[in-house]
Design a protein around this nucleic acid. Structure first.
Length: 588
RNA sequence: CGGGGCGUAGCGCAGCCUGGUAGCGCACCUGCCUUGGGCGCAGGGGGUCAUCGGUUCAAAUCCGAUCGCCCCGACCA
């Protein structure tokens, strides 16, 4: 049992003007956290107590499938050179030098350290599978820390890594993590979704994100209200309504139309009285590729074609370009590649286009497959073409999924209209494949005595994100309430007046009784007016309050759930069983 | 990094345009009063006005630079 009067719980009437999202405001106001610098926070008593409970849930569940390690946060450069990520991570990595001038970095994630251990220690298939995890600080020099604890530069991550002999083994390790993550987030009391995710430039064949719906989130998630389909917008696909193609005009061959000064899809479609769905959109980009030969990176022109009303999904393009960086072409580059200005670019002749002798890569979105008689740019200023038909008028070497799912489109599985909502990522699981074991040289002997690289997976949970998500999901104008399992206390006992000896002694007795029954109890024994205590109790997230007031003379107190404020009178004799029903429903 | 905004007491803000006295609310300390939703009265403490430099008899205020923080766009737990 803790006594509020002796604790440091610095609650604030007003939130600092800098705080915008609910979780940031309320965690500050409730005295959970204080900011030290951009994206760097201190956790005070209540905040850290909640974090410890979250970590403990994660630990208990992870211990069922893996083994906990504790790895260094300080890593030598050589380790990251070995995996090729020392340069790849760029400015996102915190780097430093030791007194001898040797380069070090702060742990961004721990594939390298784990793989280093595997490389040195694992020798035989008999030692596989392994699942190793830790709960540790991670350091990322984010370009833009934001939204309180949502995007920070130092945070706590549970990260685990699996090593298996083959893909079938990886499937099992992956599934174990999937199920474990569900148990963890269930126990933390979150409403979450597992969605298919973009595996990023790091490769890897399969990946799921665990997300929580909230407007404070930074991702968009596409989900089907009917079947179980759910995916990050970066990865999502949809079923498109069929589009009626126009009848060919004239000879049916591509035919120039004069479109003076009309550059956008909208303008051209309006002018010609056609639908953007029957127009092609052309995008011209420059990608930066680094050949595996490891010389200097060079730029490759990339030409993309999409349906006129569709938008490019940059994550999908990134996958199509194997992770290469890209940027829009400059106007001079467009002129040089197409011989025409932006706004009038089109597909005909794309195969032969090049820039400074480097042949352009041409990608065509799948939604154009089978379409006919489209409107497209003519690669001639102030002209477009009618009757453009892919594969007849220009060759398509790659049909690719490049478009973002739009509002109102159908589920790829069942056709029901998809929902798109903002979400916050709280966990992510990846099948890594052989990337690290190969690059770093981890090898075991298989049953035949042959040397093989173990196949890996990597799995993360953001501990602070769980707290942040819970606050985002459960707040009102007075503060927030946490699921009991991750709240710093389960119940606060509030005497309305500590100068009244009966109220105080009854409160102490109730608090001790509840603590004795295994509840995590806070006694608000401060000499404050009841209003102050009620306001603070509402602010700090504790899910239940027991108010000890005048009714003690009749042997009664009030039990108030924070989420609803629906107070119930309870007999003091029954207070323990009353709270057991509320807080331990499974046992009673 | 590109764009925008802001730095004055622990928090929220005014003062700056038009240079000369640093102010308000909350919080904090003392006393009284009060005790079911941030109560009241009286007294009090606390500020290198982000930093550095310039202009001036005189700078929170005008000028320049730097730093920090927040927000909007490319990255991720």
């Amino acid at each position: 049992m803790h006594r509020w009067s002796q604790l440091f719980i610095p609650t604030l009437r007003e939130a600092p003007a800098d705080a915008e999202v609910a979780s940031h405001k309320y965690l500050l106001r409730a005295g959970y956290i204080r900011q030290l610098s951009a994206g760097i926070y201190s956790y005070l008593f209540l905040g850290y107590r909640s974090m410890r409970k979250i970590s403990e849930i994660v630990r208990q569940e992870m211990d069922k499938i893996g083994q906990e390690f504790y790895l260094p946060a300080l890593h030598p450069r050589e380790l990251w050179e070995a995996s090729g990520r020392w340069s790849l991570m760029g400015d996102n990595m915190f780097r430093l030098k030791d007194r001898k001038g040797a380069d070090l970095c702060l742990g961004f994630t721990e594939e390298e350290v784990m793989t280093e251990i595997a490389r040195k220690e694992l020798r035989s298939y008999k030692q596989l599978p392994q699942i190793w995890y830790q709960i540790q600080s991670k350091f990322r020099d984010e370009p833009r820390p934001k939204s309180g604890l949502l995007r920070v530069r130092q945070f706590t991550m549970k990260d685990s890594y699996s090593f298996d002999l083959d893909a079938a083994g990886l499937d099992i390790s992956y599934k174990k993590h999937y199920e474990t993550y569900c148990r963890i987030f269930d126990r933390c009391g979150l409403q979450y979704m597992a969605v298919e995710a973009h595996s990023g430039a790091m490769g890897g064949s399969q990946s799921h994100e665990f997300v929580v719906n909230t407007n404070a989130g930074e991702d968009f998630v596409v989900s089907c209200p009917n079947c179980r389909y759910a995916a990050n917008l970066e990865k999502a696909t949809s079923r498109l309504e069929p589009v009626e193609d126009y009848k060919a005009t004239g000879t049916g061959e591509p035919e120039l139309v004069h479109t003076p000064g009309l550059k956008t899809v909208e303008e051209v479609a309006n002018y010609l009285g056609v639908s953007p769905k029957n127009k092609m959109k052309t995008l011209a980009l420059m990608a930066t590729e680094t050949k595996s030969g490891a010389e200097k990176p060079h730029e490759v022109p990339v030409i993309l074609f999409l349906r006129g009303d569709h938008t490019l999904n940059e994550a999908k393009l990134s996958t199509a370009l194997a992770g290469a960086q890209f940027r829009p072409m400059h106007l001079e580059e467009i002129q040089a590649v197409f011989g025409a200005p932006a706004g009038f670019l089109g597909p005909i002749g794309s195969e032969g286009r090049q820039y400074k002798g480097i042949k352009a890569r041409v990608l065509v979105d799948q939604a154009l497959l089978g379409r006919k008689n489209l409107i497209a740019g003519a690669n001639k200023e102030d002209y477009h073409l009618r009757n453009v038909t892919p594969e007849r008028d220009f060759t398509v070497s790659e049909w690719t999924d490049l478009r973002s799912v739009g509002e109102g489109e159908g589920c790829p599985n069942c056709g029901t209209t998809l929902k798109i909502a903002k979400a916050m990522e709280i966990g992510h699981i990846f099948k890594l494949g052989y990337k690290y074991s190969e690059s770093m040289g981890a090898r075991v002997l298989d049953q035949n005595g042959k040397e093989v690289a173990p196949i890996m997976g990597s799995y993360g949970i953001g501990i602070e994100r769980i707290l942040t998500a819970a606050v985002e999901q459960n707040h009102d104008n007075d503060g927030f309430w946490l699921p009991a399992a991750i709240s710093p206390f389960e119940v606060v006992v509030t005497p309305t007046n500590v100068k009244d000896a009966t109220l105080l002694s009854t409160s102490v007795q109730i608090a001790e009784q509840l603590a004795g029954a295994g509840f995590d109890v806070l006694l608000d024994d401060r000499d404050e007016r009841p209003g102050v205590k009620f306001k603070d109790a509402d602010l700090v997230g504790i899910p239940f309050r027991v108010t000890v007031g005048k009714k003690v003379t009749e042997g009664m107190v009030e039990v108030v759930p924070r989420s609803t404020h629906q107070m119930l009178d309870a007999n003091i004799r029954d207070i323990t069983s009353h709270l057991e029903k509320l807080l331990r429903p499974a046992h009673s």
